[in-house]
Every structure is written in structure tokens, then in C-alpha cells.
Write a protein that binds this DNA or RNA. Sequence first.
DNA 1: TTGCCATATCGTTCTACTACGATAAACGCA
DNA 2: TGCGTTTATCGTAGTAGAACGATATGGCAA
Lengths: 115, 115
Amino acid sequence: MATPSTALCPPPGRPQEKPDLRPVEGPAADEELALLCKAAGHPARVQILRLLVRRDACICGDIVDELPLAQSTVSQHLKVLKDAGLIRGEIDGPRVCYCIEPHVLRRLKALVGSL
Amino acid sequence: MATPSTALCPPPGRPQEKPDLRPVEGPAADEELALLCKAAGHPARVQILRLLVRRDACICGDIVDELPLAQSTVSQHLKVLKDAGLIRGEIDGPRVCYCIEPHVLRRLKALVGSL
DNA sequence: TTGCCATATCGTTCTACTACGATAAACGCA
DNA sequence: TGCGTTTATCGTAGTAGAACGATATGGCAA
């Protein structure tokens, strides 16, 4: 098969509809909420999240082009989001394709919603 | 009338059911989301928020008693939350009664929900 | 007034974050 | 193999955050 130039990061064959059974309160949940909020607590990272949600997946270079920041700075922000679990990066040849981790984003929404 | 020793911070006669009409996307919304998330991005501050949501209002001293931190440190965290608009502090005699700003908390939920 | 209580602010120290340019690493292609 | 492209990492500098003890402030009671 031909290699598509626009790679889609999340393989479509995984709906991942398993509900998250972890509690939304308690010390562990508080830590998790703080961690995720901290990761989202920067305008550039919010922009990246929105970009990935809107585009469903995005090549790193496209993200760099969208933000008024140096490439190394964007790479650092991507690392923060990746370390928090909110996004995932898949190597696609010489490029890296980033995408949202939908269950972690849902988890963030659930935790914030529990406040 | 007698002054009640347990002051309730939000005066009950204000339902504040006005819906927030500001957009949940765009540059301003991104900034706002980042700001609120940053304020919530620390375990101690999450604990404070939960405390205030659960108890509806709380004397500063009670918050200090609940957290394993020095009084001055808790005071700083309260200031961060207050500067972000998430909580409000009303002076009640020699004490200060803190409470959630419900519409700002709702705004945070709406912004996170828009991701 | 004097003193006590609750809270905020100050000053300090240490750590973490943010941003950048420079460089390294990984990959495809000629 | 060697080159250009893409992304990550390193090193650095400046700023901000987190924690504490000490101190100031402001109100109430004696």
C-alpha cells in the first residue's frame, strides 16, 4: 500500500470506549488534577491542545509554525504535555505526529467537573 | 440582630444564575483557561478548592489546619486562587471567610469542557 | 490603652519554569 | 555514503513559584 503523506496518529480501529473507573476525589485524584492542570496552565500549551483537538492529529512542524515560539521551546511544551499524558507522539519517518490522548483529556474534564 | 459566629461568605440572597456569554474559544479564552488552570495546578490549591466546595465557605484558620503547610504558605496559595478569581475572601471580624466564586468555577469547567 | 488572636506581607532560599540558540540524533533521499 | 530535513536535547540566562520564619496589620476584649 502507498504511504500516505498525511499520517493519522490514532489508529482508527480503536474506539477506546472503556469508562474510567478511578475516583474523581481523594488525595490521588487531587494530585492528578493538579498535575493535569499544571500541564494545561500555559497559553502555548492550551493552543497546542486546541490545535490537536481541532485537527485530530498534527505534525510537530505544523505546531511550530502555528506558535510564535522557537522550535526548541515548542518541543519543550510538547514534552510537558506528553509527560502529563495529555498527548502522544508517534514517529512517522523523519517527522513526529502528535495527537491527543482522548481518555486523559476526558479524565481532566471529569476531574475539573468534580469540583 | 445577633452576629452569628459562623458567617456564611456568599450572601444567600443572590442566586447569580446569569449565564456566561463569553466565548470558550479564541485567544482570550485560551489565556483565561491557562490562567485558571495554572491557579489550580498545585495539589494544595486543589485541596483548598475542594474544601471550599464541600464546606461552601471556610474560615482561613480551618484551611490552615487542614493542610500540612505553614500558615504563611497557605496564605500565599489563597492569594493565588484569589488573584485568579476562583475564590473570594470576606473579612469577618478578626477572621477571614473564604468561599468559592461559583461563576468563575463554572467558567473553568466550561473552558476545560470546550477542549 | 494594652494585649491577644487571626491573617497578610516581607525577606530569604531553593527549586522549577520559560525562552532561546546551538548542537545532536534519526530518518529519507540522491 | 553523505546531505538535507525534522525533531529532541543541551547549556544558559532570566523570571517565577514554593516554602519557611519573622514581622506587620487590624480587630476584639479586658
